[in-house]
Amino acid sequence: MDNLKAITPLGSSTPRQDQVAGVTLVENCDVALASVAQRMGATISGLDLPAVGKSLAGDPFSVFWTAPGQWMIEAPMNSHEDIVPALLQHLDGAVSITEQSGGWARFDISGEGTIPVLERLVMLDLDALQPGDTARSTLDHIGVFLIRRGAQKFTLYAPRSSAASLHHALLQAMRAVL
């Protein structure tokens, strides 16, 4: 549609991928994001919204909880880049929808050794998080959303402007531990 070319949060035309021993760190740019907040007294239908601290994977929309009455919706970037109209069509009920695709950098970290890396960076009790659980925390002073996707698989969302600092912190920890 448009003729401007997007770049990744780390400033490249292609997403960055790093591998140290068994752990892979991927800059994931394939996701369109929008925040959804419940208006006063409204019930939202059309999408299952997870409970506090939880996420729900779906097609095309996956959802993770972010705050009381507030969620973040993920959808494939190539099919749902203009995510707000798509969601408006999909959701019923009084709802505030805000495009957030450009606001967040997503990093997926996975593989054997992921937890020893993360436990040097986030204060959360990672063992207590089940796959699907999500939490807000800080990593190297940067506010992040953390979602446990599997036993050795996590997603981190950080403000896009801090992507380079976050990536540096993650990579440094991977090299120090693995």
């Binding site: 925040s35 907040a37 505030s96």
Partner: peptide, 9 residues
């Protein structure tokens, strides 16, 4: 409802 979009644009 309020949400920051400083980084989004």
């Amino acid at each position: 409802t309020l949400i920051s979009t400083t980084e989004a644009w």
